[in-house]
């Protein structure tokens, strides 16, 4: 029991400090954690809605929700990867469980996600009632967290060994951003590419959240279960890779 409280205390304290440090010395401070997704939203909204004239119901909300979920995934995986380097002075002086370092990055990304979702609901409130299936909502968020965690656990050890992984991951994120229905809806995906949607837990997460929150529909249960399965596998594989490789690769820091 004492061990658990030690880990929780450590993760909470370090996440809050990291959150603070991230925007330290910037003029707008923590506001940046809000501004970034909204500026990104504005850009994409103008391109897709005004210039390309994409027609979809509640397009602005769909886009914003997609971006918020995507940003959590992208920011967290990048943050987790780099946190071993930024925390090197700590790791060189005190024994820390490497998994805790990843969870600190998660804690601090989750904080941004919660703030962003909060703002999203406030905006949504002007047009649509905020009533949705909370059980599904939380379940889907949980699976998003585990999927992101699994991916981080897979890429981080390799980044410790090969610094190229940072750039490779940037490219992969870029690809994944356009392969995931963020700027468009699942209905735009041609039949023959629909399997890509099924193989991508991020895609299912975003699609399901849109159904629940914006369209007040039940998500497609079969898809969700499939995505949970993929998430579970990703997490287990990530966990095993991380536990096996990290202690060895930490010496390359």
């Amino acid at each position: 029991m004492k061990k658990l409280s030690y880990h929780l205390n450590l993760i909470r304290t370090l996440s809050l400090i990291d959150f603070k440090l991230k925007y330290y010395g910037t003029f707008l401070g923590i506001l940046w954690s809000l501004l970034k997704p909204f500026l990104m939203f504005l850009t994409l909204y103008i391109i897709f809605s005004k210039i390309l004239q994409l027609k979809a119901q509640h397009y602005a909300y769909q886009l914003l929700l997609g971006i918020i979920i995507w940003n959590f995934f992208a920011d967290f995986t990048k943050e987790a990867m780099k946190s071993f380097k930024s925390k090197y002075p700590i790791l060189n002086n005190i024994k820390v469980n490497p998994l805790d370092i990843i969870l600190v990055a998660l804690g601090h990304s989750l904080l941004s996600l919660i703030i962003n979702l909060g703002i999203f609901f406030i905006i949504l409130n002007f047009e649509l009632p905020i009533s949705f299936n909370l059980k599904y909502f939380l379940l889907i968020l949980l699976s998003l967290i585990f999927f992101s965690l699994g991916v981080s656990l897979i890429i981080t050890p390799f980044y410790l060994r090969f610094s190229d992984v940072e750039h490779i991951w940037d490219v992969i994120l870029q690809l994944l951003f356009w392969a995931t229905p963020i700027t468009y809806g699942v209905s735009f995906i041609p039949q023959k590419y629909l399997f890509l949607h099924l193989l991508n837990p991020l895609s299912i997460t975003i699609n399901s959240l849109r159904s629940i929150i914006i369209f007040k529909e039940l998500p497609i249960i079969r898809e969700i279960l499939f995505s949970f399965g993929l998430t579970f596998c990703t997490f287990i594989v990530g966990f095993l890779i991380f536990q096996k490789l990290t202690p060895k690769f930490l010496e390359y820091l």
Binding site: I17, P89, I90, N92, N93, K95
Partner: peptide, 12 residues
């Protein structure tokens, strides 16, 4: 452990 004098403290 007290293995270096700055202890890895964070300057900021």
């Amino acid at each position: 452990p007290f293995l270096s004098l700055n202890f890895g403290f964070h300057g900021e």
